[in-house]
Design a protein around this nucleic acid. Structure first.
Lengths: 173, 173
DNA sequence: TGATTATTTCTGTCGTAACAGAATTTATGG
DNA sequence: CCATAAATTCTGTTACGACAGAAATAATCA
């Protein structure tokens, strides 16, 4: 299993970027490899292609499955597990962003709601500080509900909307 | 410099979240502290409030300044440096997202452009793989130009647009 | 210009996460 | 069931980033 130069560059870059997105290199590399692979791959093929330990592949795939980015498949008469990634890029990023909303936005939202309530009762806290917390809360709430709304939009519509770019403002005024 | 309970929670949470966003705890805590502070703070005040080493504050502030999130101010007759954060949340996130675009989206875009060109010339690479690279390139390009367009929209307009949520689709059909 | 205060840079330590390889568990075919 | 293959979990090592404290540098005042 030798990767072509272009595929190798893709996989390596994706691995690098993965580390910036809260996951680790191997996880991101495996996702990239599976995304580009025309057919599902076995763990040992991934080991071979990426030169990582078998155990590492096992752990990483489990993580990818828990995110909902990778699923297991099987071949008749073969007891080994095969894995494939989501292949639709839009779907892929919906899932990723959903995850991040769960892990980051939601906890922040509840912290801010608590903090906003609590700070209002603090007599010796500066008004400006109170206001700042409320502003941040409002921002995160707006972002959060906006995202939930947008997430309901079917992909083709979403694409069209995005292609409009700032022209969208003309319609909405 | 004793932080109120609400402020402390905010700062601690922000620090935690910071680690998920590619920066470190101290940097994020300092930004949070400065964001909430009614007036600019000196390095020694930050040391006191967050219980971190002076050197750590120096490095972190430098990082925040390089991101454009924090700026230095001075007080007449006082040679010490004072620091304040951007206070407009919308502005704050514009800057943050801009940074992330620079560091993540743009490099990925150029990798994908190279990979797309290179892979087309690879005779023994599967058609499906080629297509996947192109799909990813198209997605990132769409996202990138969409962002550039959106970034031009003034904040009040942007707020209104976001409040529309998915109702936006009715206008654009 | 020397003394003092503010700031930055340097150096070493520590904690954490990634990872390899070994050991174990689980599954399947003879 | 036993033997073998596959997959997972466990354990120790390593690499890296965060950070404190020390040392060095820069700025300001007497």
């Amino acid at each position: 299993m030798k990767l072509s130069p272009a595929v190798e560059k893709y996989v390596l870059h994706w691995g690098e970027m993965g580390t910036r997105w809260g996951t680790n290199r191997t996880v991101a590399q495996i996702q990239a490899l599976l995304y580009l692979s025309p057919e599902p791959l076995r763990a040992d093929q991934i080991v071979d292609a990426l030169s990582v330990a078998r155990s590492n592949v096992s752990t990483s795939i489990r993580e990818l499955q828990s995110y909902g980015l990778v699923r297991m498949t099987h071949v008749l008469g073969d007891r080994r597990d095969y894995f494939e990634s989501l292949h639709d890029v839009w779907e892929l990023f919906r899932v990723i962003i959903d995850q991040r909303k769960q892990r980051e936005l939601n906890p922040t939202l509840s912290m801010l709601r608590n903090a906003a309530e609590e700070v209002d009762a603090e007599a010796d806290t500066h008004e400006v500080t109170k206001e700042r917390i409320h502003n941040m809360l409002e921002f995160v709430e707006t972002t959060s509900t906006w995202y939930e709304q947008i997430n309901d939009i079917p992909t083709p519509t979403l694409k069209k909307l995005m292609k409009l770019g700032k022209k969208i403002t003309k319609l909405a005024s």
